[in-house]
Design a protein around this nucleic acid. Structure first.
Lengths: 240, 240
DNA sequence: TGAATAGTGTCTATGAGACAGTATGTA
DNA sequence: TACATACTGTCTCATAGACACTATTCA
């Protein structure tokens, strides 16, 4: 941290600082990201991550929370999970002027239909797989930000109980397993998965209730347990 | 990303953007961080992380590389490892004005004696353990940045071959093990450690040479292998 | 020779994965 | 009854850790 005397600070280059959000949810057994379609130039009409500039009075995480509740309509309490992802600051990432973007990753349960904001003509949940396979272009460097977020989410499912953030408050092991399968894009053995998650210390809290699916034996319902990390972890199959 | 029309952008709040460096090395079997003693207010006389403001023409990583070579005198090629750590932007983290700091983590081999810079009256390698136990106060929020970097380094040793970045170009398993023990602050079984690192795919490249220690059988020398990730990983003992 | 360090063998416990087998519901 | 899904048992393999053992040097 070099010198910054009050009379010299005006000479130093200041930059716009934004937060951009990778908001992930599981919808119809697909991992989806909340994207907005830009209503203004540049990249008008293209899909982009929701985000906004950091206000002088707020910390970075507060800015991310504010944007998140603006975009999803969720109150602060109902947000599943929010964490800082990384910061993107390449010189030309915004064609207008220098903008530093601090990206945050949010994991939320199944969202209500998103609403368009003032600067967006549309907002929608887009399947991550479609973005990857159809080579959908995103505005700015938002494609790499989004992929960073997806990769982070995949990794976090191994060592933390965050998969429950995609599930209902009370869920069957079945729902939890489908969440893992959706995010990891792989199939998991139901029997082994059942044993692993029920044995992981503090991952799941058993409830008294059970739920009946379309057929078969009713499944016990669980809620998230107290653990912040999984011991032992639920590891991805090596090919994922 | 909201609207940013050229005539409105002047109203938006711009902020100073800095990079701060957590530079770690192993020296005399201790994990040390390169700190500077501030020669100017605020926090004059206190220890701080080296860093500086991002120039308009450079990307974040370029700024970090520039600061790193300024502080350590290393050329770009000899830098062990550099990665983005996290971004710190609390409103009051700098008492003068709003400064967003993008922290980077650098792992380097044993450094030459550091030199003081223009804004520092001193620069020195301080043992991380001393900072923790003696409750040494660091300027700004640099203490939490430093601890984030240390935690990241500890975690990275498990899944990546980064421990070799602290070692000489050719090293014995002994030196590698002491590096792990130093960073993790734990003792490792030499026999099991030897087997693990030599079996991890692509971690080590065997050389023809051997080295003689003060006594005992000479040890084979290795250099870093091609692997970017360790399979299987070298996991910390659970109490660490 | 003894001390010290390098490196190997081997035993045990734990967990992953494959898959058979049992439990309990619906059609 | 047939079928589907929940859940349990069991076998095999891989790896971690404890620790005995062998190998090779110096004093």
């Amino acid at each position: 941290m070099p010198k910054l005397s009050s009379n010299k600070s005006e000479q130093l280059t200041k930059m716009l600082v934004a937060v951009d959000l990778v908001i992930l949810t599981v919808r119809n057994a697909r991992l989806c990201a909340l994207l907005i379609q830009r209503g203004i130039s540049p990249f008008k009409g293209q899909w982009a991550l929701p985000g906004g500039f950091v206000l002088p009075s707020e910390n970075l995480e507060q800015a991310a929370l504010r944007e998140l509740s603006e975009e999803t309509g969720t109150s602060a309490g109902s947000i599943g999970h929010l964490e800082q992802l990384a910061t993107f600051g390449d010189v030309k990432r915004d064609p207008r002027e220098r903008v530093i973007s601090v990206a945050y990753l949010a994991l939320v349960p199944n969202l209500p239909v998103p609403k368009a904001g003032s600067d967006a003509i549309n907002a929608s949940l887009i399947a991550v797989a479609d973005i990857q396979t159809e080579n959908l272009t995103l505005a700015f460097d938002h494609r790499s930000i989004l992929l960073s977020g997806v990769e982070r989410a995949k990794a976090k499912l191994e060592y933390t109980p965050l998969a429950t953030r995609f599930c209902s408050k009370y869920f069957a092991i079945n729902e939890l397993r489908q969440t893992y399968e959706t995010v990891w894009q792989t199939k998991l053995d139901p029997a082994n998965f059942h044993r692993k998650v029920t044995k992981a210390d503090g991952f799941l809290q058993a409830s008294e209730d059970a739920v009946q699916g379309s057929s078969g034996r009713p499944a016990q319902l669980f809620s998230q347990g107290p653990a912040a990390h999984l011991h032992p972890p639920i590891l991805r199959p090596s090919g994922s």
